[in-house]
Amino acid sequence: MKALTANRLLDGEVVFWNAGQWVERFADAQLWADDDPAAIAAEATAKNQPKVVVDAYLIDLVESEGLWAPLSYRERIRALGPSNHLHHGKQAEGGAVIAALQHAHGAARSTGRVNLIKRK
């Protein structure tokens, strides 16, 4: 599974793609199968919004506690908010999705981020 993420230019907030618009919560993100061409189309659309977001890319997901979570540690931190304290950021909201993000395990990097780094 994959999800599309970026940073909103207005305030730097981490955002996720859902049905043609950006949402702030990973739980609201649209998910695609790994081989779904719609994911590539959404990424292309997002990259054509340079006045709205920066560095849009697809991230790999892994199943965690019956829900989906970003595979890479970096992307889980981005989805949860700052890692300096559990009462800061989106992680302070709690709930099943936040618990799944906090307990997920995976790789150091998502293939989408690696591809983005290679292009720069």
Rank of each mutant, 00 (worst) to 15 (best):
M1K: 12
K2E: 06
A3W: 02
L4D: 07
R8W: 04
R8I: 08
L9A: 01
L9V: 00
L10T: 01
G12M: 07
G12N: 13
G12W: 04
E13F: 03
E13G: 02
V15Q: 02
N18D: 13
A19P: 01
A19F: 11
A19I: 08
Q21M: 03
Q21W: 00
Q21K: 11
V23D: 11
F26K: 02
F26R: 02
F26T: 09
A27T: 04
D28R: 10
D28S: 14
A29G: 11
A29D: 09
A29M: 09
L31V: 15
W32A: 06
W32K: 08
W32I: 05
A33S: 12
D34P: 00
D34S: 09
D35K: 06
P37Y: 04
P37M: 02
A38L: 13
A39R: 04
A39Y: 07
A39H: 06
A41P: 08
A44I: 10
T45E: 15
A46F: 09
A46G: 12
Q49M: 14
Q49V: 04
K51S: 13
V52D: 15
V52N: 07
V54S: 06
D55M: 09
D55N: 15
D60Y: 03
L61R: 05
V62P: 06
E63Y: 00
E63P: 06
S64C: 01
S64F: 02
S64Y: 07
E65N: 13
E65G: 15
G66K: 04
W68V: 00
P70N: 09
L71F: 01
S72M: 02
Y73Q: 13
Y73C: 01
E75K: 04
R76C: 02
I77G: 08
R78I: 10
L80V: 02
G81M: 05
N84L: 15
H85L: 03
H87K: 07
H87M: 10
H87L: 10
G89I: 09
K90H: 15
K90V: 05
K90G: 02
Q91M: 08
A92S: 14
A92M: 06
E93G: 08
G94H: 07
G95M: 00
A96V: 13
V97C: 13
I98C: 10
A99N: 10
A99E: 14
Q102V: 01
H103P: 00
H103T: 09
H105M: 03
H105N: 09
G106N: 11
G106A: 11
A107R: 12
A108Y: 08
A108W: 03
S110H: 09
T111N: 12
T111Y: 01
G112A: 07
R113N: 06
R113H: 13
I117H: 12
I117N: 05
K118N: 10
R119P: 00
